[in-house]
């Protein structure tokens, strides 16, 4: 008896959900994660069609990882460095905001999807290249960001 009620309840819930989902799809109101102010926000598309990226980005990155670390291939589009460079956004002081934060590109969607990554324990979550390089990159992106790697007294 109780079971039957629960089952009926679940079924209705399911139906309602399907109806809602259909609605959203029709209205094309899929939540978007590209963060305002990131280079990506200025562009038309990702390195693959958006649909493909949503579903497949983890596979792309995984294969990239092996070919980069073991075979030295750097010129391909699925590099994790590339994701960070293009999807990074900046705060009001023009400092880059770690991309894995729960309100940033990778972090927000993973938070929603309950995906827990450890990639950014090791990988830089903001573009961070030695001294001159990073400054040039930030200037090219139209920002004067703090560069974590610049040594205290000028260095190089």
């Amino acid at each position: 008896m109780v079971k039957a009620v629960v089952r009926a309840g679940l079924l209705t819930l399911g139906l309602v959900w399907v109806a809602l989902a259909a609605d959203t799809a029709l209205a094309d109101e899929v939540k978007r994660y590209v963060v305002e102010g990131s280079p990506a926000a200025e562009r038309e598309s990702c390195v693959e069609p958006t649909e493909t990226m949503r579903r497949m980005h983890m596979e792309f990155i995984k294969h990239q990882r092996i070919s980069t670390v073991h075979e030295g291939i750097r010129g391909t589009k699925y590099s994790l460095t590339g994701c960070v460079d293009c999807h990074i956004s900046y705060d009001e002081n023009r400092n880059p905001r770690p991309i894995d934060q729960p309100d940033q590109f990778c972090g927000a969607c993973h938070n929603y999807a309950a995906v827990d990554l450890n990639c950014f324990d090791c990988h830089a979550s903001v573009p961070n290249r030695p001294g001159a390089d990073a400054e040039a990159a930030h200037r090219a992106a139209g920002v004067v960001g703090r560069v974590a790697s610049t040594p205290p007294q000028g260095g190089r």
Binding site: G72, R74, T81, D121, C122
Partner: peptide, 27 residues
Amino acid sequence: PTTGQLTAVPRGKGCVESCNLCVHRRD
């Protein structure tokens, strides 16, 4: 745990590392 890593040289707690002849320069 490490913070502020360089883009070209990821680094994190619990792993071993050593000279890689500046592999990012090689590539």
